[in-house]
Computed example of a mutant assay.
Amino acid sequence: MGRFARFFYQNGLLLVMFGLIVSALVGQVLTGWHDNNADLHQMGLATLTLPEYLRSGHLLEATFENWESEFLQMGVYVVLTIWLRQKGSPESKKLDEPEDVDQQPDPAKPGAPWPVRRGGLWLGLYRHSLSLALFGLFLGCFYLHAKGGGIVYNIEQAHDGQPLVSTWGYMHTARFWFESFQNWQSEFVSIFSLVGLSIFLRQQSSPQSKPVDAPTAETGK
């Protein structure tokens, strides 16, 4: 196997997903640019060039409104699966058997990451680094959603002769929370669907599924 082929084989999932993200983002930018300019034209305001749109609140809000819900979904899911179980789902830890992920980290284990060998605060942070990163990304996207949304909101307010608001002020509007909750609930639906459907349904060769011949009531993979 050549170097490139081996690299793709070892990292194909991330590479393909990154390609899909970039493709969808390009599509979002182009269609969002035209959609926003249509709204500006209706209000009698100057339309934006593509470089101007890339710095606009419309793109900022649309992008981070969605990313916010994704990071919230993953963070909540990671944390809930620490304690909660679902009989028959490969997305859950086993009901009555110990799991490798529950074992205490061993600093003497060959190849142990350096925070495990160092111990103390570094180990404490490393033990929870996945959930901390996900919730940190959620909070960052939450703020950028509000910042972008506030810019768009103020354009509309100025057009209607209404008072402008700060980013913090926009966070107190029903519109901001409507945008957030409509995305959050859809992400929780996706988790619920994956956990629930994986009890009964199968996908050959996918690690998100139990083996095709596994009993329905069996937990774990």
Rank of each mutant, 00 (worst) to 15 (best):
N66E: 03
L95C: 02
M17W: 13
V26N: 03
L72M: 12
E91P: 01
H34I: 06
E91D: 06
T47L: 04
S89G: 12
E52P: 08
T47F: 04
D39M: 12
E91R: 11
T49M: 06
A38E: 11
S23V: 13
Q86R: 14
S89N: 11
R127D: 05
D35N: 08
S129M: 11
Q42C: 08
E65I: 00
R55T: 10
S89D: 10
V22N: 06
D39V: 10
P105E: 01
S23D: 10
P110H: 04
R127G: 12
L45F: 09
P51M: 04
S56T: 03
L121I: 09
V76G: 05
V22G: 00
G57M: 08
G27R: 03
V79N: 02
W83I: 10
P110L: 01
E99H: 14
E70C: 12
L60I: 07
L121N: 00
W114I: 00
F18V: 11
D106M: 00
P115N: 03
F71I: 01
V26G: 04
S92E: 06
T63F: 09
G111K: 05
S131Q: 09
V22Y: 04
L84F: 15
T47V: 07
M43N: 09
W114M: 05
L59E: 04
V76N: 07
G44D: 13
E99D: 15
D100E: 13
V26L: 14
L40P: 07
R85C: 14
V76T: 13
A62H: 07
Y77F: 15
Y77S: 11
K109F: 07
A112V: 00
N37V: 04
I21L: 13
T47N: 06
M74S: 08
D96I: 06
F18M: 14
K93F: 15
E70R: 02
